[in-house]
């Protein structure tokens, strides 16, 4: 058969895909540099970066992202470890629970949060601090499908039972096992989960918007409504941030999937 013909067909679609990826990206980049008439400049970026509201909302979302990663790790890592070690039979149930945020659209989810926690007896929306607790819990739930999957895959690639037995026979207690044996073996899985989790929180609009907290998402919507060039600069910056997060995952997970377990094999 004529392989040459098929190659052209393949190349046509590949080029089309590359065009779809790069044209909007390039268009945005070009647009973001056009703020000053007649020349290319970084003025839009300067304006965004020196806007105190941007800095405040970026800081808010970044702090929220880090806290979400910490809390997710605190909840999911010991749980997944325990499940793999003791009760592997409930894994299907847990898996279904963790993909629930995919089934319930975020806008519906935030509706549920407001209905449940926006009124007594469980009211959490009265003070900013309490709302922050609520929003963080929401972020943990929203990023759970990614975080759980990353940790579950990581846990599957190490021999939990042998590691635990070895640690116990050396006299380690549970805290020591989790911190000194499981955690170091999970660091790559944890890192990729953490980065996806962080990227999710940084780019999130709905929770911040409807729970009225000064997150990056609502700020971007507002800039998009009021300004022309700054949104393009913001778009490029968030593209770069996603790029960095995913790039780091790629770098850290490369060639490490097979040799993830450091000890005990």
């Amino acid at each position: 058969m004529n392989t040459k013909k098929w190659n052209w067909w393949a190349i046509f679609w590949s080029v089309a895909a590359l065009a779809y990826f790069f044209v909007p990206l390039f268009g945005t980049l070009e647009f973001s540099l056009r703020m000053e008439r007649g020349k290319l400049s970084l003025k839009a970026y300067q304006i965004v970066l020196s806007d105190p509201q941007f800095l405040a909302s970026f800081q808010y979302s970044a702090v929220m992202g880090v806290l979400t990663v910490l809390i997710s790790t605190l909840i999911f890592l010991p749980t997944i470890y325990w499940i793999h070690l003791k009760i592997p039979k409930i894994r299907p149930v847990v898996e279904i629970l963790t993909i629930l945020p995919f089934i319930v659209p975020t806008i519906v989810y935030v509706f549920g949060l407001i209905r449940t926690f926006g009124r007594p007896p469980l009211q959490l929306t009265l003070t900013p601090f309490k709302t922050d607790i609520l929003i963080m819990a929401g972020y943990v739930i929203l990023s759970m499908p990614y975080m759980y999957r990353a940790l579950d895959v990581g846990m599957r690639s190490i021999d939990v039972v042998s590691l635990t037995e070895a640690a116990q026979s050396l006299g380690a207690n549970w805290v020591q096992i989790v911190l000194k044996v499981i955690l170091p073996n999970m660091r790559i899985a944890l890192l990729s989960g953490a980065l996806i989790c962080f990227a999710t929180v940084i780019g999130e609009l709905i929770l911040g918007d409807f729970l009225v907290r000064p997150a990056l998402g609502p700020y971007m919507v507002q800039v998009g409504r009021d300004k022309a060039y700054e949104p393009a600069a913001l778009g490029i910056m968030s593209y770069a941030l996603t790029w960095i997060c995913l790039g780091l995952i790629e770098i850290f997970s490369q060639g490490n999937t097979k040799t993830q377990q450091l000890t005990g094999r």
């Binding site: 044209v23 390039f26 268009g27 647009f31 780019g203 609009l205 998402g217 949104p231 778009g235």
Partner: peptide, 22 residues
């Protein structure tokens, strides 16, 4: 596949909006 939300809208406005690049 992970790039959605508000920045995606910005990218398309900058590309195919009234004064967009394309």
């Amino acid at each position: 596949a992970n790039f959605g939300g508000v920045p995606l809208a910005f990218a398309f406005i900058a590309t195919l909006g009234h004064t967009g690049f394309v």
